[in-house]
Design a protein around this nucleic acid. Structure first.
Length: 627
DNA sequence: ACGTGGCTCG
């Protein structure tokens, strides 16, 4: 140890080690610490466990683990606290590999262990492996510390972090007394595993045993109700949180509740809560931006993003991927490009998720070339990236690119998931590639062990249906190992419509009515099918049935931007908002479309008539948002 | 001098 040329510390009487203690808070650099270290050695006070540990702790805090270890090794006799200081230091500096060997040394010198050490080791094992975790668990059992107040929550946390919920439950059930912390952590485990019902069950148990809620449990509960889209119960727990004084100054809980309301469609409640938040951070803003985009309120999402920028909150990759999602929902290439520009101007680093959202935006806004450019330039790609690009080519009708990309993906050993196959099948269906579609559908299970979901079956029914292979479609549905969903029957109904199978359509529609889902679309479709086959009596009946049941057609909309204005078209009866130029252009276009048989199948010609008929479309104008 | 957690994105 060399001393600096200038002494910062006076020579202190060895008996007054207290004076050295008081110098710790004044060490703001490695140099200061080393000088203090020297003084301690000079005066022989390193014999003191206390000073040695404090020194090690300070070295860790300044990011110099190596010196911490040196100070520790210089202590001739160590007490449990000094060992624990080292374990804690390595844990906090993420040097997990040092922890177990150090603990081995400790145990070689000591017959005993203690709850502090165990907690550090358990936390290290959380980052290591289940095998090591289990061995430390048995160590805890050996010393009767398994149910210790600090040890058992750490064990529960470790097990669910390592993916073994069963082991977490075992520890949870062995706890002699349920406390808020243990319950909170168990709920966190369930929450991570998307076991929302179990989260709620755990909460019910807490109520029964009168265990108080803690913030962790509260957050999990809000998340669970959000996922279950059960905002009614959500409002009740919100009230409970307020009563339990959990809400104030807890941004995490506030954000979780915000998210819960948004996920379950209680937009008003969410807005109210959002408005009341005393300090909105990046996450609460991003939550609003994300959820608004996801529920199709792209314009509001962008406005919220703008509001966030006005508050001088710097968006991150998470925020921007949601903004990009809003742009793709609006179909606004201008807005999407402007977001891309914002990212470049402000040098915001995107992650793989955000780049995928950028690619997806370009694809969905019609700029497939830009989408591919982004894809091509990405340093890393995951299955979502590949799937988005495959889907992009698919929606542009570029089947050969779809198949080509899938092939490339397999060459780099990326494994397709269920969604990749939805994109593939949908592309093959739209291009009428029946044979390839069948092969792809078979391959999904045979080569990748993925079992077909209703979405895949819908694509297949659509594939057969478009090609006029109604019988094949019916057989496929009959042999489905799972209960066909409304979308599967919907695809068959669509096929009936194309090929004018009135009778089958009625049967299928009845299947759809039997399923508990939004029936208005089915009624409309059915009535259109009758219309196509000119069975006007049935059209009338269907329409009457709709009125009887008080069903309204779900409102659809589409949008386009012209000269920095976003035109939103939706079904509504106020046609005065129509710009006459747009109306004129629309007429020209529809006639032209008919002339060139724009619709892929001859039999779908009547679609065009129908669209023209529905020129009760209104148009609202919104200005592009600048940021 | 050493110990138990929480929110947003494809």
């Amino acid at each position: 140890m060399t001393l600096g040329t200038r002494r910062l510390f006076p020579t202190i009487d060895a008996s007054k080690s207290v004076d050295l203690h008081s110098l710790f808070p004044h060490c703001n650099s490695l140099r200061h610490l080393q000088q203090l270290h020297a003084q301690i050695l000079i005066h022989g006070i390193h014999l003191s466990n206390l000073l040695g540990s404090k020194l090690a702790d300070s070295y860790f805090a300044s990011g110099h683990s190596h010196y911490a270890r040196q100070a520790f090794d210089q202590m001739p006799s160590k007490n449990p606290q000094s060992w624990n200081t080292m374990l804690s230091g390595y844990l906090n500096t993420n040097t997990f590999s040092e922890i177990l060997p150090l603990y081995q040394l400790y145990r070689a010198e000591n017959q005993n262990t203690n709850s502090y050490s165990l907690v550090f080791i358990i936390r290290a094992c959380t980052k290591l492996s289940l095998k090591e975790g289990k061995s430390i668990h048995s160590e805890a059992i050996k010393f009767g510390l398994e149910t210790n107040t600090y040890v058992s929550p750490s064990l529960i946390n470790m097990y669910h972090e390592l993916g073994s919920l069963e082991d977490a439950e075992k520890v949870f059930k062995q706890a002699p007394l349920l406390n808020p912390t243990i319950c909170g952590l168990m709920m966190k485990g369930y929450s991570k595993a998307s076991m929302d019902l179990e989260v709620v069950e755990c909460f019910d148990k807490m109520k029964e045993l009168r265990v108080q809620l803690n913030p962790c449990a509260a957050v999990c509960l809000a998340r669970a109700f959000g996922n279950l889209a059960a905002a009614k119960q959500g409002r009740a727990i919100h009230a409970l949180f307020i009563k339990s004084a959990l809400m104030a100054s807890n941004v995490y809980l506030q954000t979780s509740l915000l998210d819960m309301y948004m996920k379950s469609g209680f937009i008003e409640c969410a807005h109210k809560l959002f408005g009341e938040l005393p300090c909105k951070d990046i996450v609460s803003w991003s939550t609003m931006v994300a959820r608004l985009a996801q529920c199709g309120r792209g314009y509001e999402s962008l406005l919220t993003f703008q509001g966030m920028l006005e508050e001088s909150i710097i968006p991150n990759a998470v925020t921007l991927s949601s903004v990009l999602l809003a742009c793709s929902h609006l179909g606004s290439l201008l807005q999407g490009k402007s977001t891309h520009g914002y990212i470049l101007r402000h040098g915001i680093e995107l992650d793989i998720v955000a780049y995928t959202a950028l690619l997806d935006m370009y694809a969905k806004c019609g700029s497939i070339d830009m989408a591919y450019k982004v894809f091509d330039q990405m340093q890393q790609r995951n299955i979502f990236t590949w799937t988005a690009m495959i889907g992009g080519f698919g929606m542009h009708g570029m089947v050969s690119r779809v198949l080509d990309l899938f092939h490339q993906m397999r060459l780099v050993n990326e494994m397709p998931n269920s969604v990749t196959f939805v994109s593939l099948l949908s592309a093959l269906s739209h291009s009428g590639s029946v044979q390839k579609g069948i092969e792809c559908f078979k391959s999904m299970n045979r080569d990748y062990g993925l079992s077909a979901t209703n979405e895949h079956y819908s694509c297949m029914v659509d594939l057969f249906g478009r090609a006029g292979l109604i019988e094949e479609a019916e057989t496929l549905i009959k042999n489905m190992p799972i209960e066909p969903s409304a979308s599967v029957w919907g695809a068959l109904l669509g096929a009936c419509r194309i090929h004018k199978h009135g009778e089958l359509a009625e049967q299928v529609a009845n299947k759809l009515f039997a399923l508990d889902h939004d029936m208005s679309d089915t009624h409309v479709l059915l009535s259109n099918i009758y219309g196509a086959s000119e069975t006007w009596e049935m059209v009338k009946k269907t329409r009457e049935k709709m009125n009887e049941r008080d069903l309204q057609k779900t409102l659809g909309f589409s949008s386009i931007e012209v000269d920095k204005k976003v035109y939103v078209f939706g079904v509504c009866d106020t046609s005065k908002s129509w710009d006459s130029r747009i109306a004129g252009l629309w007429n020209v276009l529809s006639i032209h479309m008919k002339e060139i048989s724009f619709i892929d199948f001859q039999s779908r010609e009547n679609d065009v008539d129908e669209v023209i008929e529905e020129i009760v479309y209104g148009c609202t104008q919104k200005f592009a948002i600048t940021f």
